[in-house]
């Protein structure tokens, strides 16, 4: 079986400085795969290249067997790829409900969209309580929940999450991961970029470790979690 997302020899550079050096990885359908690494390892650059926000200088990105290297970001949604950007990127001056509807912008099945908004509200009750509130007035954790819910309304086959735990209190991070797990269980394939290696590996099927723009370790998440090199570098012991 071929992978849902297949990245080969991907290279990203910022004015001659290589941020990503020919990396390979893949995500199979139904998997939750995580890309972990320290700050500056190139995690966000990878995601930016995948989502059309920057053009890679080399390599190919294949999705469902189709070459999507360097595709503009607004075309991704139609293919079934949603990105939950770093720093959440909710529309602060739109209310919660409007933010969710914008996630479904590319769709026209209004009745079905509203049903799915209700599903999101059931899955994340906190959003339902704040449906008419401006997104800018939500807490960081609530904004992250909203960003994930919004991405889900695009009905993605592949959901890419960029550091969903960033800047959140531990209790809130747990809640976010509960939601991510729920989404994964329902069959959405997830590519999770995380700095919190412990939590990411505990929840993922497989993982890749990114170090200075190169993938240094790859494998089953449980194996990585037990790997002494991962332990030493990312898990504090």
């Amino acid at each position: 079986m071929s992978a849902l997302l297949d990245v080969k020899q991907l290279e990203v550079a910022y004015g001659g400085i290589k941020a990503i050096k020919k990396i390979d990885f893949h995500v199979d359908e139904g998997e939750l795969v995580t890309l972990i690494g320290a700050n500056g390892a190139g995690k966000s650059s990878t995601l930016r290249a995948l989502s059309g926000l920057i053009k890679p200088v080399g390599g190919t990105v294949t999705y469902k067997g189709q070459d999507i290297t360097g595709i503009p970001s607004h075309a991704l949604v139609g293919l079934g790829i949603a990105l939950c950007p770093e720093g959440r990127g909710v529309f602060a001056r739109l209310n919660v409900h409007e933010n969710l509807l914008m996630g479904a912008y590319a769709r026209n099945d209004k009745a079905q969209i509203l049903r799915e908004v209700d599903e999101i509200y059931t899955m994340i009750p906190r959003l339902k309580e704040r449906t008419a509130q401006l997104a800018g007035t939500l807490s960081g954790g609530e904004q992250q929940m909203l960003a994930i819910g919004r991405a889900m309304l695009a009905q993605p086959k592949l959901l890419m999450l960029d550091e969903p735990s960033m800047g959140l209190a531990p209790l809130m991070v747990e809640k976010i991961f509960e939601i991510i797990n729920l989404i994964a269980k329902r069959g959405t394939t997830i590519l999770l970029i995380e700095q919190n290696a412990q939590l990411a590996l505990e929840n993922a099927h497989r993982g890749y470790v990114l170090e200075s723009g190169e993938i240094t370790l790859a494998g089953d998440a449980k194996t990585l979690l037990a790997d002494p090199r991962v332990k030493a570098a990312y898990l504090g012991g």
Partner: peptide
């Protein structure tokens, strides 16, 4: 309206609006 909401979203953050599939 949907188009009006998209206008406000685009006014606020063009990059993220693009990620929603909005043709800026």
């Amino acid at each position: 309206t949907k188009i009006g909401t998209a206008m406000r979203a685009t006014a606020e953050n063009q990059k993220v609006a693009g990620l929603m599939g909005i043709d800026i």
